[in-house]
């Protein structure tokens, strides 16, 4: 891309309109490259990153969770996680202990009809994007980056009845 920009600059006899177009193409390519790098960077949160750095880089989490021991986790989903849903778990000093990608094929495969509870579903896949009620029960929609959403339906016993949208 830099070579392309250099070539455009070094063409003194090119018509002005053509040069402007080339500059626009170059600028668009540069913008795309920066955007792509940001998307990659936002999931690469190394262990030891301080909570305030995470907040500064990624914004407010979509959900804050605590486990039985009081360990705090932040979930980034949907618009706030353009390259995929993930959960950051902090240690007692407020530094990232673990960055976990949610909504991977392996995690969807762990959802079992008649077995997985609503609580386990949240721990596996994170905050649902939307909950609607259907004839069968509560339909929880989980959005995925670059793939169609997965809908998990929970019955009255708060266990999974079915899952659609995941092959």
């Amino acid at each position: 891309m830099l070579d392309e920009l250099s070539l455009v600059r070094s063409a003194p006899d090119a018509p002005a309109a053509q040069r402007r177009t080339s500059w626009r193409v170059g600028a668009a390519a540069l913008l795309l490259a920066v955007t792509a790098n940001a998307s990659l960077a936002d999931t690469a949160v190394p262990s030891g990153t301080a909570m305030d750095v995470v907040r500064s880089r990624l914004g407010i989490p979509q959900a804050i969770r605590f486990d039985g021991t009081g360990t705090q986790s932040w979930e980034y989903l949907g618009r706030r996680a353009p390259s995929g849903a993930y959960r950051l778990t902090f240690d007692a000093t407020g530094s990232v202990r673990e960055a976990l990608a949610l909504r991977t094929p392996e995690r969807f495969a762990q959802v079992r009809a008649g077995v997985t509870t609503a609580e386990q579903l949240v721990m596996l896949l994170g905050e649902p994007a939307k909950i609607t009620m259907s004839e069968a029960g509560a339909a929880w929609r989980f959005d995925r980056h670059g793939a169609r959403p997965v809908t998990v339906t929970l019955g009255a016993d708060r266990r999974v009845i079915s899952m659609t949208g995941f092959d």
Binding site: A63, R65, A118, V122, E127, P128, K130, I131, T132, M133, A138
Partner: peptide, 11 residues
């Protein structure tokens, strides 16, 4: 759900 819609957070 019918009156309030989808919740903003489930925990």
């Amino acid at each position: 759900a019918a009156r309030m819609g989808s919740p903003s957070s489930v925990w």
